[in-house]
Amino acid sequence: MKNMDYYIRSEQEVYENIIRNRKELLQDIIQMKHANYEAIVIFATGSSSNAAFAAQLYMSAKLAIPVYVEEPSTAANYMLHLNKNTLYIAISQGGHSYSTIHLVEEIERQGGNVFTLTSDLTSPIAKAGTHTIDLGMGIEEMPYVTLGYSATILMLNLIALEMALLQTKITETTYQSEIAELQKITAHLPKAIAQSEKWIEAHFNELMEAERIFFIGYGATYGVAREGETKVTETIRITSFGKELEEYMHGPYIGLSDRDYIIFIEPHGLLENRADKLKQFLKGHVEKIRTIYANTGGESTDDLLLGLNTAELLTPLFMTIPVHLLSFKISKEKGINLEVSAFPEFDQITKSKI
């Protein structure tokens, strides 16, 4: 049976295939040899949006241009003002998201160019767009996507690398070094899974009892925190929030409860000291404060150390593994059947999927 656990464990093979076949998968992007865009706008919702936020800063750093993430429904209905100097990317992993399909159709109708990322080349969104990019992962047969989220981050990172190389914003040497780093992360995935499983097992009872979980990240791991909110809400079906570090510190902390379960996503980045100050404050009010570290760190045995030293902006490629695994394992223990839709009438009534 293919479930969330199966797809989490498939990530290493899929990463390897995507990296190996990147030139073929991204041939439409590579053919834009003379396109020097001044900005990128990514349209996505749900886990696709979380993945876009996880890749956003890496893309911006490599291309030295701003990268924005926008909701497709808001853009299509209220502020679709196309700019020839902006690269538009629309993401729908399954290819059936109504709002994203509608957006692609509207951009095409207005004569704009948009690159569509999907795992299903026969899906409605693939047919709606002129330029479709295969995510290179096959079709994920689960509504609660894990593999698709991760593959999307990798593909967006590779799009930035290919464009940066074509536009001579990075050298061939730098390009090869970045590819080698992606391969290093890929090789580390089984260890990240093993470490995550041990941590979840050690904290299983308290995770089962959690009533409200906050995921707090910064930089690229903001996307990981958002994905934590999405997956815990969808699978465990308790209250969950994914907050950017400063966002949490400017309001939400006032509503904290001593029963909150708080998980920091720490990539060892620019704001690590800032995150430590927030933890110092929270320790006086909340018992369950845990940190998922990309490499090592922290004095508490309650923290998860994933043991990989890599660039801050690449950490979402493996730091979401414990988040996805705990969502799967806790929901399974609680008897929540993820193979069956909780509300089968939803799409029929709302037409959110085509």
Results as ranks from 00 to 15, higher is better:
75 A>H: 03
205 N>I: 11
121 L>P: 01
51 A>K: 07
315 T>M: 02
142 M>E: 14
109 R>Q: 15
6 Y>M: 13
37 Y>T: 00
131 H>M: 09
52 A>F: 04
73 S>E: 15
243 K>L: 14
268 H>W: 06
321 I>L: 08
13 E>T: 15
138 G>K: 01
27 Q>L: 04
269 G>I: 10
35 A>P: 00
242 G>Y: 10
177 S>T: 15
85 N>L: 09
253 Y>P: 01
95 G>S: 07
204 F>Q: 10
55 A>D: 13
143 P>K: 02
71 E>M: 06
150 S>L: 02
227 E>G: 00
73 S>T: 09
25 L>K: 10
161 L>Q: 15
25 L>W: 13
340 V>F: 05
107 I>H: 06
65 I>Y: 06
80 L>D: 09
50 N>G: 05
304 L>T: 09
349 I>H: 08
26 L>C: 09
55 A>H: 11
230 T>M: 03
345 E>Y: 05
267 P>S: 06
69 V>G: 03
295 N>S: 13
128 A>G: 11
101 I>Y: 04
139 I>D: 01
59 M>K: 02
164 A>I: 00
288 K>D: 14
336 I>R: 04
152 T>R: 03
330 I>H: 01
210 A>Q: 07
160 A>N: 05
27 Q>W: 11
187 A>V: 14
181 E>V: 00
222 Y>C: 06
160 A>K: 00
122 T>L: 11
108 E>R: 05
161 L>M: 15
162 E>D: 07
164 A>S: 14
270 L>C: 01
259 R>T: 12
208 M>C: 13
245 L>H: 01
58 Y>L: 12
333 E>R: 11
341 S>Y: 05
42 I>P: 06
174 T>A: 14
107 I>Q: 08
208 M>E: 15
340 V>D: 00
281 F>A: 09
